[in-house]
Design a protein around this nucleic acid. Sequence first.
DNA 1: TCTCTTTCTGACCGTATGGTCAAGGTTGAG
DNA 2: CTCAACCTTGACCATACGGTCAGAAAGAGA
Lengths: 210, 210
Amino acid sequence: MAASGRISKRDATRRENEARILAAAEKVFAEAGFGGATMQLIADMAGLPKANLHYYFATKEELYRKVVQQIFEIWLHAADSFDDAPGPVEAIGAYIDAKMEISRRHPFGSKVWASEVMHGAPVIQDYLETTLREWTKGRAGLIQRWIDEGKMAPVDPRHLLYMLWATTQHYADFGHQIETLNGGRPLSDRQWKAAKESVKTIILRGIGAA
Amino acid sequence: MAASGRISKRDATRRENEARILAAAEKVFAEAGFGGATMQLIADMAGLPKANLHYYFATKEELYRKVVQQIFEIWLHAADSFDDAPGPVEAIGAYIDAKMEISRRHPFGSKVWASEVMHGAPVIQDYLETTLREWTKGRAGLIQRWIDEGKMAPVDPRHLLYMLWATTQHYADFGHQIETLNGGRPLSDRQWKAAKESVKTIILRGIGAA
DNA sequence: TCTCTTTCTGACCGTATGGTCAAGGTTGAG
DNA sequence: CTCAACCTTGACCATACGGTCAGAAAGAGA
């Protein structure tokens, strides 16, 4: 029974299996693309028989959709940093920090998202047209207000947002390239910190807010 | 015979067919990913029977490799802008212009490249380790010199380069998202110009070179 | 025109993939 | 303990895909 806070063994197993599958799927979709990913590979990586995947997720599309949605949630949540800030320096600084952290912690998710958008967003087009459009409109308005109040230089708010997305996500999506150019080694803690600082410094100075 | 400047009908056809196939392949690989792309679809788009593709390109991998190489060439060529410039403003300004123009003219190529790198660069890893590594080292050194000469603010040259790549390529790779946020319409000439200016303004001011 | 080489193509093949299913196991409420 | 609901899985199926091939067509040189 689930009426109390008690979770039954069934519920626990279900949750764990779903989580395992989603994690494996995220990785496989990121590394092979939707077309290149196979249910068998995801199953192996999750340590479950393939038929079991289809018990939890009827089709490959459905599984993929869940993965993409999961990422979108994380994405949106990072935007909170943007809100409760008095001005552009704090807001954008915190947003860059948050998004860089996501790039570091969820590189697979970022890649799946990038892949989805690059392929014309067949699965999450409606999100783009509703949630993301709203979000963008709101933040662009906020930035415009800061400009009007003289808190930053007059730049096109939308292109600034694109720049923030591009720059931060690049560290996840092109992580392999960066790693190669770093002598084949992943960025160290110190290097990640330097990356964050570089991005923040250039952009904040670039918008005349530092 | 081809000893003279004369091109035989055969050579002409060959060239045209290869070009058609490569163009179709670029588009299909960009829109579906390597795994999602099918030789049949590429063939249809090129207006040739599938078996004919295999006459010109033995395998799907070989065709894909050619597509990626083609892009890499264009990529490198854009870097010329970087060289014959007296200082950061001219060099980086011209580089941004060139790369934005590529994003606009070759969005499919950019996507294929992004996809390739995101999947761990299985095909062009050697290019990353040789040509790109050299190129990056050279430009980073150049930027460092400008910093030492007081022509720009002290920023990490590599992270600046990543920022340039990320920002400019974003307009190709995430073009669909940008289009959606633009009310479903592709960016107009005017908007592309504004994009270029925004990027240049923010980055050049960001590195204290404007 | 004749002949040799290159190009073209419909039909075909083996394989891998997404998805199904029926039978058997496990869990938990009453 | 019982039974219904839920979960697990090996075996199976239809399809679609990359790639092959034999022979027809077309071009180039003589």
